[in-house]
Simulated scan of single mutants.
Amino acid sequence: MIDPSAQLPADLELPAFTVVDAEVRIELGCRLGPFCHLHRGARLGAGVELGSHVVIGEGAILEDGVRLGSHTVVHPRTRVGSGSLVGDHAILGKLPTTASTSTLKPTGELPPLKMGPGCTVGALAVIYAGTILAEEVFVADLASIRERCRLERRVIVGRGATVENDVTIGESTKLQAEVYITALSTLEAHIFVAPAVVTTNDNYLARTEERFQHRKGCVLRSGCRIGGGAVLLPGVEIGEEAVVGAGSVVTRAVPTMKVAYGTPARVVRPTPPEQLLSAQKKS
C-alpha cells in the first residue's frame, strides 16, 4: 500500500506487502525487503537497503548508504548517519519504560537518537532515545545503551555490554563483552575496560531515602585500564593511565599512573612506562 503523497524514484521496485505512508521520501538506488513499513514523513537517502519486516518510524531519517537488517525497528525521528550498518532485530531510538515501583522517574520528552556516519550496531542491540553516537561507533550484538548517553568517535561497546542512562564515553574507549557501566558515570578517552567489569552507583543497596543524595557513578580518566571481572564501588575515580587488576574490588580512588589490585584494591607500583599511551604512539 503506497500513499499517493509519497515521493518514490521511478526505478524503485517495492516487494510484496510493503507499506509506505504519507510524505515518505525515498531517494535513488534504495532496496527494500518484503513486509517493510515506512511511517509518515520517513526519509531514505540514496542507496539505503532494508531487510524484511523493517519498521521505520514517523519522521525518521536514514542517510545515504545505510543498511538495516531484517526485523529492525527505527523509532520516530531517529537519525541514522550515512554508511551505518545495523544488524537483524536491532531497536533504535526506543523510549524508556519503568516499573511502577522504580525510583527512576520520567524526566520529560527525550530528543531522538542520533547516530553519526559509519556506525555499526549489532544484532538484537537496543539503543534508546536521547542518546548520541558520534561517527564510527561500534555497538556489538546484544548490547544495550540507555537514554541521554553520549558516545564519542570510535567507541566500542562489546557483546552483551550495558551502558545505563546519563553516561558519557570518550573517543576510542573500548568496553569488552558483558561490561556493566552504571548510570551517571563518566569515561574519558582511550580507556580499556575488560570483560565482565561491573561499576556501581548506590552504596545503600536500594535502602533508605538518604541514598538519593549520594548516588554517584564512577569516573574513569583518560588512558586507564580495568582488568576483567573488577568491581568499582560508587563514586570511585580511576586516574589517568592507572591500571586496575583483574578481579579487584575498588573502594577508593586510584591515583594517576598507578597499578592497583586486590580486595580491596591497593596501589602496588607505578604504571610501567612502556605501557603509557605516549609510548604506544611513538612505536
Rank of each mutant, 00 (worst) to 15 (best):
I2H: 11
A6F: 09
P9C: 08
L12H: 08
L12I: 15
L12G: 10
E13G: 01
P15F: 13
F17Y: 15
R25P: 00
I26P: 09
L32H: 06
G33R: 06
P34G: 06
F35H: 15
C36E: 12
L44M: 06
L44K: 03
E49A: 15
E49W: 06
L50M: 06
H53M: 03
V54F: 09
G59H: 02
D64M: 05
V66Q: 08
V66R: 00
R67N: 03
T78L: 09
R79E: 04
S82V: 07
L85F: 03
V86C: 02
G87Y: 04
H89D: 11
T98C: 07
S100N: 11
S102E: 09
T103L: 14
K105E: 13
L113Q: 11
G116L: 12
P117M: 08
P117W: 07
G118Y: 07
C119K: 00
A125G: 06
G130T: 06
L133Y: 06
V137E: 00
A143M: 04
R146W: 08
R150F: 10
V155Y: 02
V155C: 14
I169L: 11
E171P: 00
E178H: 15
Y180E: 02
I181P: 11
A183W: 01
S185K: 10
S185T: 15
S185L: 07
T186R: 15
A194F: 04
Y204W: 15
L205M: 11
A206I: 02
A206E: 14
A206M: 12
E209T: 13
R211S: 12
H214L: 11
L220T: 07
L220A: 06
R225H: 03
A230G: 12
P234H: 04
E241Q: 15
V244K: 09
G247S: 03
S248P: 07
K258S: 10
K258E: 07
V259S: 05
A260K: 00
A265F: 10
A265M: 14
R266V: 14
V268Y: 00
P273M: 01
Q275H: 15
L276F: 08
S278D: 12
